[in-house]
Computed example of a mutant assay.
Amino acid sequence: MPKPHFRTEKFAFAEGHVIVCGVDEAGRGPWAGPVYAAAAILDPKRIPKGINDSKALTHERREELYPEIIAVADFGIGFASAAEIDEINILQATYLAMNRAVMALQAVPTLALIDGNRAPKLACKTQTLIGGDAISLSIAAASIIAKVTRDRLMTDLDQLFPHYGFAKHKGYGTADHAQALKTHGPCAEHRKSFAPIRALLA
Rank of each mutant, 00 (worst) to 15 (best):
A146V: 06
Q106E: 12
A93P: 14
G78L: 08
Q92D: 14
I139A: 06
I139R: 06
S81P: 11
T8E: 14
I77S: 10
V148T: 09
K49T: 12
R100E: 04
L201M: 11
A37S: 13
A40K: 07
A107V: 04
I77W: 06
T58M: 08
S193L: 07
A202G: 13
A123C: 13
A39P: 00
E15R: 15
P2M: 13
A56R: 14
K3L: 14
G173V: 07
I135H: 05
Y36M: 00
A38W: 13
A202Q: 11
E9M: 06
S138W: 05
E9R: 07
Y66M: 02
I41W: 06
A202V: 03
K45E: 15
A119D: 08
K168P: 00
L200N: 06
G22E: 08
L57W: 03
A199N: 12
I77Q: 02
C187L: 06
G116F: 09
L42Q: 07
A195C: 01
I51V: 15
K121H: 12
T183R: 08
V35Q: 00
H163Q: 15
Y164V: 03
A39Y: 04
R152T: 09
P162D: 12
L42S: 13
A14E: 15
A71Y: 06
D176K: 07
E189V: 07
A178M: 10
K55V: 04
G29M: 08
F13H: 15
Q159R: 14
A202L: 08
E84Y: 02
L42A: 08
G165F: 05
A56S: 10
A101F: 12
T149R: 09
K49H: 12
A40R: 04
L160S: 05
H184Y: 15
T155A: 15
F79K: 12
E63V: 04
G16Q: 11
R100I: 01
K10R: 15
E189D: 02
A14K: 12
L113K: 05
F194Y: 15
T8P: 01
I51Q: 08
H169R: 01
C21G: 10
G76Q: 04
V20H: 02
A40E: 01
Q106I: 11
A97C: 03
I77T: 01
G171V: 06
A83F: 03
Q159S: 13
L57H: 03
W31L: 15
L42I: 12
H59P: 09
E63N: 03
L129A: 10
G173Y: 10
E84P: 07
N89W: 05
A175K: 15
D53T: 08
Q159I: 13
P186Y: 01
A26E: 04
Q159C: 11
T94R: 08
A26T: 01
A119C: 08
L200M: 05
V108W: 00
T183P: 00
L65H: 10
A107C: 13
R62F: 02
L181Q: 05
D43V: 02
A123Q: 13
Q106S: 14
D43K: 07
G78V: 07
P34M: 09
A199T: 15
A119V: 10
D43E: 10
L137S: 07
Q127I: 01
I114E: 02
G27Q: 11
G27H: 08
A188N: 05
P109D: 09
